[in-house]
């Protein structure tokens, strides 16, 4: 890895460790190898959002050309959000693409991703299904996002009705995550979700 990238990540790492966000538990950063190219980030779900109480892990890959090019970041923890792919965890955020600026740091990027959880941009979606639900049925979207936070990110609030529906599909032999995706996609209508799951397998 180019020298400037590794040196900068080292400096950033120190900065993050001293920051008040780390002290307050809002964000975390961990090294995954000694070459400073792969890190793991962690953000707390912001208060007053469906992600509250959840902990979300992020994969961070630092390119050799950092900081002239942005780090590659995706969610490792599954999340229901208009700007994050519910399949791959890819994030649609301008500063990770053409609005990247060399003075941004891993700390400011993690805080921006956290802010994205509080304020989604449904008109610039990464996941079209989620964005549609966000716009057309905000109440159901919030419940679904809360349910995913509970299922994958250690969030506190279980949605009993949703859990029961997931269980119904589990009893039919469907994989748990697939069941959750199908139900979330079809606004928790058990019949339509079942139909879609079993038609696809044929």
């Amino acid at each position: 890895m180019a020298n400037i990238a590794a040196k900068r990540i080292k400096r950033e790492f120190k900065e993050v460790m001293k920051s008040e966000e780390v002290a307050g538990g809002a964000i975390k950063l961990e090294l995954l190898d000694n070459s400073w190219t792969e890190l793991q980030g962690e953000i707390a779900g912001p208060p007053d959002t469906p992600y509250e109480g959840g902990t979300f892990l992020l994969e961070i890959k630092v390119p050799e050309t950092y900081p002239f090019n942005p780090p590659k970041i995706r969610f490792m923890t599954k999340i229901w959000h208009p700007n994050v792919s519910s399949v791959t965890g890819a994030i649609c955020l301008d500063i990770l693409k053409d609005q990247w600026a060399a003075a941004l740091t891993l700390r400011t990027v993690l805080l921006s991703i956290q802010a994205l959880l509080s304020a989604a941009e449904p008109n610039d979606p990464q996941d079209a299904v989620v964005a549609k639900q966000y716009k057309e049925n905000p109440t159901l979207f919030a419940l679904t996002a809360r349910h995913w936070t509970h299922a994958y990110a250690g969030g506190p609030a279980a949605i009993r009705d949703f859990d029961a529906k997931v269980q119904r599909l589990l009893d039919m032999g469907v994989d748990e995550h697939q069941a959750r995706v199908a139900l979330s996609t079809y606004d928790w209508e058990l019949e339509r979700a079942t139909e879609q799951l079993f038609n696809r397998e044929e």
């Binding site: 400037i4 040196k7 900068r8 400096r11 950033e12 900065e15 900081p67 060399a102 003075a103 740091t105």
Partner: peptide, 14 residues
């Protein structure tokens, strides 16, 4: 010419 010790370069952070 830099005349203080307190600033750093926002790109390399040195």
């Amino acid at each position: 010419t830099i005349d203080s010790e307190s600033k750093n370069c926002p790109i390399c952070l040195k």
